[in-house]
Design a protein around this nucleic acid. Structure first.
Lengths: 133, 133
DNA sequence: CTTCATGCAAATAATTTGCAGTAAG
DNA sequence: CTTACTGCAAATTATTTGCATGAAG
């Protein structure tokens, strides 16, 4: 629950923050100005600076994550367990794929070979979705 | 060889382009203004717009690739076979790891489960390198 | 009440564009 | 010669900051 997540991180519960989180949840992967434009429809006084500031806070609090994909604007998503982004270069859709075992396998293999302590992964596969083929 | 790569893509061979490619090669992963600043030392008339324009062309020609990492400026690298970026969050170093089999395995597993036709992958692991541990 | 968040405007940074002059093939 | 590239300046777009006001706890 969003209110609890904010509370846990000593962030005050404001309508703006809840609105931002609701937009991200609704779209899954959404850009900063999509968040802004969407919220402005119901709350015209919403400020873009507020979106920026809050995304920063909420990212630090690990409530949201940035999603950086090749040739795309930065997007945001709600933080969830490690997953792969499947991007369709035709229709632009982005879906999450949770294949924990495979990701874990890659991760530990990498760690073993490189001797890095791995904390996060960022994985995207770009191609054509079934519908667009 | 850079000249040949440009020629193959009907891009004229200019000192600026060669300088850009040489910088990228030298640093492995380099940001736009690092490229610009470095080249300007020996060629003070170098223009930032030229860097931007050429990175775009050379990316389309698949000579270079953009590298987008969490919480970092965009960087560029020479195009090479699929690999993983290992990022140290302490010292900021970025190294490439070529573990073709593992990447291929993940890729085909993804393709199988999702029915996507996968064309490219973008994989990063963020953690602490051996030296910084 | 006290602290923190918001919204606005201004500042800064990042990227793109148009165009005249110049270099590459 | 012809085409495409460069550099510059201006235009856009993206992001950050400071500060007065207002809302949350």
């Amino acid at each position: 629950m969003f209110k609890q997540m904010l509370k846990d991180n000593h962030l005050k519960i404001t309508p703006q923050r809840l609105a931002i989180l609701k937009e991200i949840q609704k779209f899954g992967h959404i850009s900063i100005d999509e968040i802004y434009e969407n919220i402005k429809e119901s709350n015209p006084s919403m400020s873009l600076a507020t979106v920026y500031k809050n995304l920063t806070f909420m990212q630090e609090a690990k409530i949201v994550d940035e999603v950086k994909l090749p040739n795309q604007k930065q997007r945001y998503e709600l933080t969830k367990s490690p997953h792969i982004h499947l991007v369709c270069e035709k229709c632009g859709s982005i879906i999450d794929m949770e294949i924990d075992n495979s990701i874990q396998a890659l991760r530990s293999h990498c760690a073993k070979v490189s001797h890095y302590k791995i904390k996060e992964t960022s994985i995207a596969m770009i191609g054509i979705c079934p519908k667009c083929q």
